[in-house]
Design a protein around this nucleic acid. Structure first.
Length: 479
RNA sequence: GCUGAUGUAGCUCAGUUGGUUAGAGCGCCUGGUUGUGGACCAGGAGGUCGUUGGUUCAAUUCCAUCCAUCAGUACCA
């Protein structure tokens, strides 16, 4: 091989923030998707799939500015059309609803797929990632909000996540706080953005940022919102109260902000949702009112939801959303109210992997049919088909070697539980040899002595050929 | 974007006070064993020492630059 040839090699690299899912992860990922789908369909949500590429104008709408433009994968496509990869599903949902006027409302739909954002990658955070959305479009009824929260709880349960909390609040309460603290409109989103950091940065940092700003651990300066002390005091007053969760916090906030109409509305709405959840018999330990939740600015208009894993809070929210009553405006000029929530599938997957909370299957095959004697290929293929017809996932060794060692090594490496071995010894007696690779793997942990390992029980036995299917079915792991 | 750190084999890392053939462990490949996995034993492949430029008789080593990665932070519709 010449040096020139070497230079022509293409480096096997993936783009920043993109990744592959090796089979063991993808198997777990698809199992997750199936559970989520089941959970939503049980609640009568309908599947919808929309285009991955949209007109840039569709995606950006009124949010069109330099910043949002930098955040998405946009480009000029064929026919000189400005287009971009979707960064979420909600806009596409709004477009779909707007262009299907006969759609029966309320429209309950779920959608999953990849979305793309030019973000800085971090743990559980990628530039291409999967979201799984559930929304109800076309109703202001708080029953819809309650249904979404209910879906969040039942889906987390269905996914067998143990230690989580669905927290929710109402943006209207914070809108009232802005008024209460006499904060001018142009500073309101800055203030909310800072309050949103409460969880991650803590109360002291928030207070500093509301005022003069602070310096972070790396020495980077973070500029403050420059509020006056009286304003900050009023926000502190609220934060103290909001640290009490649930009904007691709600009562206390009502005393503080009840005179402000928008806050009172928000409080009433939360009370109504609480009542619905209670009538739905949603486990009260799984949900919690947390009045410090902010979420997307200029987007959510009412209740907002978040789901945190109590064992891995640093992964942030894995399932979140809220009510957005203005989104369809962009297409219709009139508003259609909507509420929904979205699972960050890959973030949740990464978190569950980090918690070691997923069973990882290595292979989809249960049986590897080895090819020891090529003369016998017709028999092997018959056995293979017999297994598959019985519903047992199986494969035949399709590699080039007839070396049995290598075939079994292959089965071991890819994690196939059983290897079927048969040569003239077996065929003459009507037998088949089944080697339990999984049992062997277990045994290998106990002994380092080869002789002992080879002699171990349950690792290999010869059975009557006619008993093959029942033997495998009995010994298959059920997972 | 900002602040800081780090780039040497597929992975984790050692090393060179500037000097000829740059090392280890793990992984990978081959054989021991074409009728049997792990462990073990023997052998082997694999590196323009991140890029470009500068200093020097000589740079993987020193300097500059860019790029990439990691951490924190900002932004996140």
């Amino acid at each position: 091989m010449s040096k020139k040839n070497k230079k022509q090699k293409v480096k096997p690299q993936v783009l920043k923030g993109f990744r592959d899912y090796p089979p063991r992860e993808q198997i777990a990922r698809e199992a997750m998707l199936a559970k989520i789908k089941d959970s939503f369909e049980l609640m009568g949500f309908l599947p919808l799939q929309t285009a991955s590429l949209e007109f840039a104008e569709t995606l950006l709408g009124s949010h069109y500015n330099e910043d949002s433009l930098n955040e998405l994968f946009g480009f000029q496509g064929p026919d000189d059309v400005d287009m971009a990869l979707r960064y979420e599903f909600t806009v596409s949902l709004a477009r779909f609803v707007a262009s299907n006027p006969t759609l029966p409302l309320p429209f309950r739909r779920y959608q999953y797929g990849n979305v793309w954002r030019v973000d800085k990658p971090g743990p559980g955070r990628y530039r291409e990632f999967m979201q799984f959305d559930v929304d109800i479009v076309g109703t202001q009824n708080l029953l819809a909000d309650s249904e979404i929260i209910s879906a969040m709880v039942s889906t987390m349960d269905k996914l067998n996540v143990k230690n989580y909390k669905v927290r929710f609040s109402n943006r209207k309460i914070l809108n009232g706080l802005i008024e209460y603290a006499s904060i001018p409109q142009e500073k309101s989103s800055d203030v909310m953005r800072v309050i949103d950091k409460l969880d991650k940065q803590g109360r002291d940092a928030v207070i500093l940022e509301l005022g003069a700003g602070r310096v972070d651990v790396s020495g980077d300066k973070i500029k403050g919102v420059e509020l006056e002390n009286t304003q900050i005091c009023k926000i502190e007053e609220f934060l103290d109260i909001a640290s009490q969760k649930n009904v007691s916090g709600l009562d206390a906030v009502e005393k503080l902000l009840g005179s402000i109409e928008v806050s009172q509305t928000g409080i009433n709405e939360l009370r109504s949702i609480l009542e619905n959840l209670s009538n739905m018999n949603i486990d009260a330990t799984k949900t919690e009112i947390d009045l410090t939740i902010v979420r997307g600015l200029g987007y959510y208009t009412g209740p907002v939801f978040e789901t945190t894993l109590l064992d891995l809070p640093e992964y942030g929210s894995v399932f979140s959303g809220g009510r957005y009553d203005n989104l369809v405006d962009r297409f219709l000029g009139r508003s259609i109210p909507a509420v929904g929530s979205s699972i960050g599938v890959d973030r949740l997957l990464a978190a569950l992997l980090a918690l070691d909370a997923l069973e990882l299957k290595e292979s989809t095959s249960q049986v590897l049919v080895t090819v020891m004697d090529r003369e016998r290929l017709p028999e092997y293929l018959n056995i293979l088909q017999e297994l598959r017809n019985a519903g047992i996932p199986s494969e035949i060794f399709t590699g080039d070697t007839k070396n049995l060692t290598k075939q079994i090594k292959y089965g071991d490496k890819v994690g196939i539980p059983f290897a079927l071995i048969a040569g003239s010894d077996e065929f003459e007696k009507g037998l088949l040899t089944i080697k339990n690779l999984q049992a062997g793997k277990e045994k290998a942990k106990e002994t380092s002595d080869r002789e002992e390992w080879l002699k171990a029980e349950n690792i290999q036995e010869s059975i009557e050929a006619k008993d093959l299917i029942s033997y495998i079915k009995e010994n298959m792991s059920t997972s």
